[in-house]
Nucleic acid binder design. Sequence first.
DNA 1: TTTTTTATGATAGTGTTACTATTTTTTTAA
DNA 2: TTAAAAAAATAGTAACACTATCATAAAAAA
Lengths: 225, 225
Amino acid sequence: MHLEVRIKMNDKLFLRNPEESALGKKIVKQGLSLINKIGFETFTFKKLSVEIDTTEASIYRYFENKHKLLLYLITWYWSFLEYKVIFSVNNITNSELKLKTIIKLITEEPSNVSEKTDFISEYESYKLVIYEGAKSYLTRHISKDNKDRLFKPYKDLCERFSSIIKEYNPKYKYPHSLASTILEMAHSQKFFKQNLPSLTDFANETDDKKIILFLESLLFCSLKC
Amino acid sequence: MHLEVRIKMNDKLFLRNPEESALGKKIVKQGLSLINKIGFETFTFKKLSVEIDTTEASIYRYFENKHKLLLYLITWYWSFLEYKVIFSVNNITNSELKLKTIIKLITEEPSNVSEKTDFISEYESYKLVIYEGAKSYLTRHISKDNKDRLFKPYKDLCERFSSIIKEYNPKYKYPHSLASTILEMAHSQKFFKQNLPSLTDFANETDDKKIILFLESLLFCSLKC
DNA sequence: TTTTTTATGATAGTGTTACTATTTTTTTAA
DNA sequence: TTAAAAAAATAGTAACACTATCATAAAAAA
């Protein structure tokens, strides 16, 4: 059986739904890989239009501006991650194991072969979140974007995470902040490891195991304290 | 006695040292407050030149581009914070107290009256770090910037913090990652509290006391674990 | 004091970015 | 088959991110 995950995107993110046409999918798919390649600051719709052999004007029919495209991709990632969390945690009754599963899911690099997703690459969107994730909310229009519920997927994931934290230790005082700390650090520590290794203790590690151990210790020490 | 703090800035940050002229100081001072006012994305040298009644070309004689100005301001903040840490921790022998002092210093909003600094406002630079700090390193030229030692102040602070962590508990395995986590979260949690409060447990707090308690619990639970 | 250097201002110019508008062609649906 | 919608082609504009040149004023050196 071949199951494809389809995520319902907030329609404030686009002018025309990119899922509904070949061009739209190309914009999202190639947009993601071009942003990853050259960085969000230097990415333009003009460059993307050359890459996918269309015009700037055509891209503007789908997305108001490049920030909306970034938000589209980032919220897709958070939605997909929440889906993975729901799926993976489903049969687990032990809350410690649930928490460990979540940490693993948010930290581990997805494999770039045999993607289970349709037109958005999970691997590419994971890379995007590490390098550009914070730029999706560090803006002066965060209040408007928030009213449009554009951060709902991230908040939902944080809420789900924190509800399991409460399940594990109902007396812990800062479940949301602890959840958002782990979520942020899963990506920050990875970024630091690759780019500013002296801010971490993982400089010579080839995989993410030590980051996972660090995050587990952060979480469980806090909860057993 | 009136003591003024003077921080030696890395000369790769500028083309002409802004400290050495009235115009240079104005660029830095008003640049900082204009970025805080309108956000880094919408900030331009043209807008700043109108504000301080000079020309774009004159500003370009001091800074290569607006990212270098941002880095100048952010690294000034980290340097100043390290100075405050050194000064405050100086006479303390108890390492627990040292750690608590550091958390307080990095988290608490500096007062915007009676600044002890010359032309850069500590209060404004604290605000800047919260909203724009991550943008100073989330770029594709981080590797070059790092070679130019532009992140040294942040690394130094992290190293100082982590050495006190080791002093408190020499067996703790992740002193650098724990230090960078606390440093990052001091600002992220504050940003979330103000803009995406459901990611935190501080929504209805008027001051930063609960953030400090959260960071203390994160730190000491990990170290006593 | 005079000369030289240096900083700033004034002005202009270029290629790119971030769009919007219009018109034509192609694709899809009734 | 016709009508509607989507995409392509083309053009245009204001702002952005610079670079270059020259005149002038102020500061520093001779």
